[in-house]
Design a protein around this nucleic acid. Structure first.
Length: 135
DNA sequence: GCCAACGTTGGC
DNA sequence: GCCAACGTTGGC
């Protein structure tokens, strides 16, 4: 079991859109580091859903229901997609500001490499955020 | 709107 | 293969 975080702009496709659609093919990643992470995802891995832009918060969870395949929107065939399924939307999103208060998160890709749109989470980081979401 | 941090591209 | 110039992303 691996843990991940997927970023998107809520104006583009929000966690509410995912809750409505239930499933979506995650397309449009055009960064090799992010692609490599997509390719490392395994069936039933869990991922947080993060909103950039105005909100900047972890807003819910989803899971990987189809492993990496060629991104159907990529004509070059170099990049990958996975398919994800909605699990839950947090009642209380965990803001970036809130995450920064935790040393564990200061070491995360989310804070260290803010431009990355697909990134792994350690189990400790996953558990911390999960706990915060229940407060 | 600005800027830091990366990525990418193209000239050499 | 290096690096300058440019483009993109995301936080502030």
């Amino acid at each position: 079991m691996n843990y991940w975080l997927l970023k998107n702009e809520p104006e583009d496709y929000s966690v509410d859109d995912l809750a409505r659609d239930k499933k979506i093919v995650w397309t449009g990643v055009r960064n090799y580091q992010a692609r490599n992470f997509l390719q490392a995802m395994q069936l039933n891995d869990l991922a947080f859903y993060y909103h950039t832009s105005n909100q900047k918060a972890i807003v819910g969870t989803c899971k990987i229901i189809k492993c990496a395949f060629v991104d159907p929107t990529d004509e070059s065939g170099k990049f990958s997609s996975v398919e994800i399924e909605f699990i839950q939307k947090f009642k209380n999103p965990i803001s970036l500001e809130q995450l920064k208060k935790h040393d564990l998160m200061l070491e995360s890709y989310l804070l260290k490499q803010s431009r990355l749109s697909v990134m792994p989470f350690t189990e400790d980081q996953w558990n911390l955020v999960s706990e915060l979401s229940q407060e």
